[in-house]
Amino acid sequence: MLKGRFGGFFFQLIALLLAFGVVSLILISVDASPADAYKNMFTGSFGSLRKFAEVLVAFVPLLLVTAGLLVTFSSGLWNIGVEGQVVLGAITTTWVFRYFLESDLPPALIIILAILGGMVGGAIWASFTGLLKVFGGVNEIFGGLGLNFVSTALTIYLIFGPWKRPGVASMSGTVPFPDEFSLPLLADLRISPWALGIALAGIVLVYFILQGTYFGLRLKAVGKNFRAAYLLGIPTWQYSMYSFLICGALAGAAGAVQVAAVYHRLIPSISSGYGYLGLMVAMLINYQAIWAVPVALFFAALNIGSIQLPILMKLDSSLSGVLQGILVLFVLLAEGVRQRFAKKA
């Protein structure tokens, strides 16, 4: 057991080194110094409190999405639709804010309602994928992907249509909400401690569900062997739906935070790709909740740190995306190799 775990760690370390090696080769091929690039990315993300706060801004939605995906992965579902669930969370949050724009309710209450609204919106959107899967026999990958496109189209329709700025038809987004609709931010920083709290609560909740409850155990049973779980008397399709709803709610919370604490309005790319990035994080951590926080933080740091590359080295900041992708590939590959070794031994 110990040996196996150690072996896994060893293979993942190799994968990490390989990924950095390949990216270094790419950098060398364009005459850039890998050492400088990594150094700039590091100081760009952890070099100051301000920068670390920006990393946390990206970390919050990423962690929420990852937490949600741990649930769907545990029940054996590939919830690609998580991206759209983030978007719908943002849309519903925007809708709630707009609904209460003129109201006399305390802003705190409106913010709570808006975030809860976002969670409900995300959950409902996820339930569509779930219903298509359970009752329509549509694989959740295709259903989810389709709904992602629909969610983008819906955002664009709202921004250019019913929610447009007066006299304007632009991708720039809806009219920004008043300051009191913002989740309170730390002085001089852009991070909201409440957003951070929501994200940490989300991952703790998921960890608790998966590790400490009978519900989580059954969820995993459904994921490991759907048919066997069914024969053992677990209401399998209900469990699939539960996991979609939980994931949707967490993704919706990510979208809600994007509106309430980051952009303060609806913009076309409101999800910032965190849904897809969350999928990578979940795969990288091999669906173990305990690793979600450090790895999501690492990915968020890569995203923020890479902004330094175009400013300081005239390199494209998509390099961070390349590194993230390669890393996931190598880790999966290493896992495959390890299993092969394990079998032989």
């Binding site: 305390p106 802003p107 913010i111 709570i112 929501i198």
Partner: peptide, 15 residues
Amino acid sequence: IFVLAACGGQPTAAP
């Protein structure tokens, strides 16, 4: 979440 959000209710002075 309610508790967290409720605590966030009093917006501090925006910078």
